[in-house]
Write a protein that binds this DNA or RNA. Structure first.
Length: 693
DNA sequence: TTACCTCGAGCTCA
DNA sequence: CTCGAGGTAA
């Protein structure tokens, strides 16, 4: 034991004062940032703030994490930690028209089996970033980005700097655990002010509030985030423990409000599709006058029991929908159409546009997908065209303004020869895509193929970026993926922007990547229709490359004769492999060039654990599992965990099933399991079982 | 598809 | 300081 704690010398008076100051400042904060109705002047606030700061500095033991002084940002981080969402943060399906809104409402009522109108909570859809806030016993303990819905980033320190986010919930009592979900956004006035300051300083401006908010949250140094006046609105609850029962979403939101969480006061309960539509129109009218950007509205079934009944479909709930405002449009000129050659040789027409600012970004490129699309829209080079960009992502050439068509507008023609390698371009009967027949001799295909090969989900070789690969191909240093492993430091160092250090790094990365897994390797090959999960399934099923090749070749000869469905029996035995994928595999593995490539890659030292570890005495050995419903991880990931522990995963529940793993919104499988008396496991039960030895 | 942040490394100029 | 690469978000 060391010296006596300094605490003992702090008088009760000081302790009291600190507590009073915290309570006062928190209350003022709430008035100011949440209710937008300040009760004291900035100067008065400042005086109290400094007093508290002074007390905390001289008596560090009085410093608590929810003190208002703790919003200024602590030490900078090195990286953001990963965070697993206990309950996935789903995305929403979109509706773009009154008809789609009607369809949604009909589906909801059909699902609930009611004919009368149901109530929805209608809310503006803020154009910001979705985040998750975790409160334990009312104290903010963690904040995270949505990420891919399953895994996000821990941005607690950055979120703590947002004044509207309470560090401690007010009122009480509080649930043991409460995950609040909402949107972080940049209020327009603050955004304009920030950009004015940036302009004065002569630094780059942010193009829109959303990006400014995203940028602020991505800062490793929370002090920078603290200097950006971000805002937040809560709109949902994720996981919770001890929250109590709520009948409606509206009641839940009211509770959040009572705990001092900011909830938009534009949110309304509306009735039926008609009520939704009115809300939509009203919001559209208000949109321009709002102090923040919105890109639509969201309707959620108000009745929480009804939500459970409806459940989810492929990572989006059936009980909610986002009704997007029409995509913003702008007129520009189609300068040219270039043809891009993809990894599989697909020839894709790409519109080169006169840059135009639309939907919060400058658009200069847009895919035209394929020639059918070009023909359907009848766009010609030189045309004035309408470009559309919905808040979400991909810009689109909507149509040509035929009235304005210049006399010299050129019809877009599919090139007969590949613009890069000159090989013939072929378009198969009934197919929308045309393909360059050059294979790996085509530099464009090689480039795209290599980029895929070195990708993080494939061979994961760091350092081979787009530009470096172009150089390597141009200089004939790399003609196939094999060559990536044969590069030497000296030769590399002679390239542009690549001196000794980088060259050595790249060589080392290639060396390290030689040790991989069969699944990654198969994915890296870029066989058509074989994505990450199919590659993994093939690896699991066959265990070795040799067995896969054997199966593919054995399946191939009979391909022409029988009915499609009966072809490729060995390949189709793999889960998720149907006739189409099997045909691609059979074709790929009978091509002599491909077999040579495989040999060469193995010769250069690429290896993986040959036989997948068949777990004989794992905790789940001999047990059969079926998975249903929405779990915190993808079905494949859960299956892999079970198999890694020796268990077997099958598709449907029978008397032979030992356990049913049931997630959110489990349906008929759950009913069947209950009928057959099969044990049902929740996610936590399964986790516990996996941990056990 | 675009915009943003971060990092390491290379280049440039004092 | 600038570039390329890698990552994230919508």
């Amino acid at each position: 034991m060391g010296a006596p704690e300094p605490d003992v010398v702090i008088s009760e008076e000081i302790r009291q004062r600190a507590e009073t100051l915290r309570a006062l400042l928190n209350a003022y904060n709430h008035r100011y940032y949440v209710l937008d109705d300040p009760t004291v002047s900035d100067a008065e606030y400042d005086v109290l703030f400094r007093e508290l700061q002074a007390i905390e500095t001289s008596h560090p033991s009085l410093l608590v994490p929810d003190s208002p002084t703790q919003r200024v940002g602590g030490a900078a981080l090195k990286v953001f930690a990963e965070v697993r969402h206990r309950m996935p943060m789903q995305s929403l399906n979109n509706a773009f028209s009154e008809a789609e809104l009607g369809d949604f409402d009909r589906r909801v009522r059909a699902g609930l089996g009611v004919v009368h109108d149901v109530d929805y909570v209608a809310e503006p859809k803020l154009d910001g970033l979705a985040v998750s806030l975790l409160y334990e016993q009312g104290l903010l303990v963690r904040g995270a980005t949505r990420g891919d819905g399953t895994t996000g980033e821990d941005i607690t320190e950055n979120l703590r700097t947002i004044r509207r986010i309470p560090l401690r919930l007010s009122g009480g009592p509080h649930p043991a655990l409460l995950e609040v979900r909402g949107e972080v956004f940049f209020p327009l006035a603050a955004f304009k002010k920030l950009n004015a300051e940036m302009e004065a300083k002569g630094v780059k401006l942010f193009v829109n509030p959303r990006n400014a908010a995203a940028g602020a949250l991505r800062q490793l140094d929370p002090k920078i985030t603290a200097s950006r006046p971000l805002a937040f609105y809560a709109y949902a609850v994720g996981v919770s423990e001890g929250l109590g029962q709520f009948k409606t979403h509206a009641a839940l939101l009211q509770q959040l409000k009572d705990w001092a969480l900011p909830v938009s006061d534009l949110i309304e309960v509306v009735t039926g599709a008609e009520g939704c539509w009115q809300f939509y129109e009203a919001m559209q009218a208000k949109r321009a006058g709002l102090p923040f950007d919105i890109d639509g509205v969201v309707y959620k079934l108000d009745d929480l029991a009804g939500r459970d009944e409806l459940g989810s479909v492929s990572r989006a709930p059936r009980w909610a929908i986002a009704h997007k405002f029409p995509a913003e449009e702008a007129e520009t000129i189609l300068l040219d159409v270039e043809f891009q050659i993809g990894r599989t040789g697909a020839v894709t027409p790409v519109a080169r546009l006169k840059p135009v600012f639309v939907g919060g970004a400058t658009v200069s490129n847009a895919t035209l997908h394929n020639m059918d699309e070009v023909a359907r829209k009848d766009v010609r080079i030189g045309d004035a065209v309408i470009v559309r960009r919905a808040g979400d992502v991909i810009p689109e050439v909507a149509r040509a303004l035929i009235d304005k068509r210049p006399a010299d507008a050129r019809v877009v023609q599919l090139p007969e020869a590949c613009p890069v390698c000159g090989s013939p371009v072929a378009r198969e009967e009934g197919e929308a895509v045309a393909r360059c027949t050059g294979g790996l001799t085509c530099r464009a295909q090689l480039h795209a193929g290599l980029l895929h090969f070195v990708g993080r989900r494939a061979m994961d070789i760091e350092g081979f970026g787009e530009k470096l690969l172009i150089q390597l191909i141009e200089q004939d240093l790399v003609k196939s993926p094999v060559d990536l492993f044969k590069l030497d430091t000296q030769r590399l160092a002679s390239l542009e922007r690549l001196a000794e250090k980088s060259a050595a790094n790249v060589v080392e990365a290639a060396e390290k990547a030689k040790s991989t897994t069969l699944g990654r390797f198969l994915f890296a090959l870029g066989i058509r229709d074989v994505g990450e999960s199919t590659a993994e399934a093939l690896a699991r099923h066959f265990g070795t490359l040799e067995l896969l090749i054997e199966a593919a070749q054995a399946d191939a000869p009979s391909a022409a004769a029988e009915k499609k469905k009966d072809r490729f029996p060995l390949l189709q035995a793999v889960p998720d492999v149907g006739p189409e994928v099997a045909a691609q595999l059979a074709r790929w593995f009978t091509d002599a060039h491909h077999l040579e490539l495989l040999t060469a890659l193995r010769d250069v030292g690429i290896r993986w654990p040959e036989v997948p570890q068949v777990v004989i005495d794992g905790p789940l050995s001999g047990k059969t599992f079926v998975i249903t419903g929405t779990l915190p991880e993808s079905r494949d990931a859960v299956a892999a965990r079970i198999e890694a522990a020796g268990g077997k995963v099958t598709g449907s529940v029978s008397a032979k099933t030992d356990f049913l793993v049931a997630g959110e919104a489990a349906g008929s499988k759950l009913a069947k399991a209950e009928k057959l008396g099969v044990a049902v496991l929740g996610w936590d039960d399964l986790s516990a079982l996996l941990q056990s030895k």
